[in-house]
Amino acid sequence: MIEAGDAIGFRGAAPRRPRSLILSSNVDLAWLARGLERHGHEVEVHGSDGEMPEMVPVASDSLRADDYQLILHCHMPTQPSPGPITKLDHAQWAAQCEEPARRTLQSLQLAQSHIAANGAIVGLGPAFALNGTAGLAGFSMALETQRTLVKSAARQWASRAFSINWVALAPARLVPGLADADGIGRFVVGPDLRRPPADEPIAALLAMLATGGGAALNGQTLVADGGEWMVP
């Protein structure tokens, strides 16, 4: 697991490789950091796999650069588990819904002051919320709050020289404990032709967004799950 403040392959020396920053909570993105490294990125990670205090513990002056080509933010609930909404207490609701959304706000605020010209700020979330899943209403609300905030940020900062998008991944990528939850996998139509993407194409897509090739995309939702859902 990656610990808060870990730097993976960050050397900070010229000639510059593209710099990526990952702001995350309650999710293991080591696979993605390694994938970005294979695409030549220097990757700095501030996150945890479940031990986050209330706020994102990333102070602006603790970052190692102020010109990241790619800033990823991904905030999941603490120990998400499916269950009826009527069984959730308020503390569980806060953990499932409110805390992840707050961290996205904080991450966007931090990201906009540390993104390089022509860079990309990308939010990551599991794709199930685009379609809804029984037993995960609070988590779904968090994800759609996050995704709409990304759209608003993209609109508000549209005149600035960076892009802001959302990439929805197969749930197993971000919340493996929910991978087998009823209805979370895919919209079942016809034979099972699912083609779950490996680490490499996901890292390649994200790296591409931080280049000129991704500049035309802003405020978009890209579903990078190999075709599990095919929404909207």
Partner: peptide, 18 residues
């Protein structure tokens, strides 16, 4: 405002299934 309203949509979809 828009984030809250967007969040409601996620809630609605999942609650409808539940």
């Amino acid at each position: 405002y828009s984030a809250c309203k967007g969040g409601l949509r996620g809630f609605v979809k999942s609650l409808a299934k539940e």
